[in-house]
Amino acid sequence: MEQLLFRQARASDLPRIVQIIRQAQAQMRALGSDQWQDGYPAPADIEDDLAAGAGYVLCRAGEAEAVAYGAILFDGEPAYGAIEGRWLTEGTYAVLHRLAVADGHKRQGLAGAFVRRTEQLARERGAGSFRVDTHRDNGYMLRLISRHGFARCGTVRYRSGERIAFEKILE
C-alpha cells in the first residue's frame, strides 16, 4: 500500500489548499449541488483553520504537495448543540469539516485514508466519538460516511442551510 503523510497544514500549504477547495466547489457545481456555492469555504476560512491548528493535509510519501485537505476540530461545533435528532454520545468528540481531495487524485481512496487518520488522531487525543455533517446531495461524502461506520443522528443547521449529521463511536 502506498505511503501517505498526514500532517498539520502550514501557511505555505495555503495556495494548494485553496486550489483543492476550488476544485471541489467546481465539482459540486457541475453535479448540481448548491453546497459550497456561496463563497464558503473562502481562503479566510482556511487561514482560520491554520491559525487554530485545525487544518490537516494528506500528501503522498516523498512529495510536499497536498492531495487532500480537511479541518479537524476538537473544541466542539456550535451547530451540533441544536441537533434535530440525537447524538449517540454526550462526551468529547472530533469533528471533520471541509474535506476535499484534489482533482487528479480522486477515486484513489484518499478520502477514506483521511477519515482513518482523523479517527486515529481523535483516539490519540482522547475523543470518544467522531462527528461529521454533510449536504443531503453530497453523494461522495454520504458513501464515505457509510463505508466508515457512521450512524445518522439527525440534522443541524448552518447559515447556508440544513446538513445531515452523523457520529461514530470510537473504541
Rank of each mutant, 00 (worst) to 15 (best):
M28Y: 11
G139R: 14
L96A: 15
E167V: 09
R22T: 11
G126F: 03
G109Y: 08
R163I: 06
R10Y: 01
E77C: 04
Y80M: 02
R157D: 05
R98E: 04
A66Q: 10
Q37G: 07
E167D: 09
T89G: 07
E2M: 12
G126R: 03
A79P: 04
P43E: 08
G53A: 07
R123I: 15
H135M: 02
Q23K: 08
A151R: 14
V95F: 01
F74G: 13
W87A: 10
E119S: 06
G112Y: 08
L58N: 09
A54R: 12
G109H: 05
A24W: 00
G161W: 10
Q108V: 01
Q37H: 09
V67N: 01
R123P: 01
P43Y: 03
Q25C: 06
L170V: 12
D45R: 01
E162R: 11
R16F: 06
L73E: 06
A102L: 02
D45N: 14
Y140G: 14
R10D: 08
L4T: 10
Q120A: 15
G126M: 12
T134Q: 07
G104T: 11
E167R: 03
A61P: 00
V57P: 11
R136Y: 11
D34R: 14
Y158C: 04
Y69N: 02
L99D: 05
F74V: 03
I21M: 05
L144V: 06
V132F: 03
I21S: 01
A68V: 11
A102F: 03
D75N: 15
F114K: 08
C59I: 11
F114A: 10
T155M: 05
G70E: 02
R125G: 10
G126L: 12
L5E: 13
R117C: 13
N138V: 05
H135P: 13
A151D: 13
N138R: 09
D137C: 02
G55A: 15
F74H: 09
Y93C: 08
A11V: 11
A122R: 04
R86C: 10
A94G: 15
D103M: 05
V67A: 12
Q23G: 15
G104H: 07
V156N: 08
R157E: 13
D45P: 00
G161T: 10
L5C: 13
L99V: 14
G154C: 06
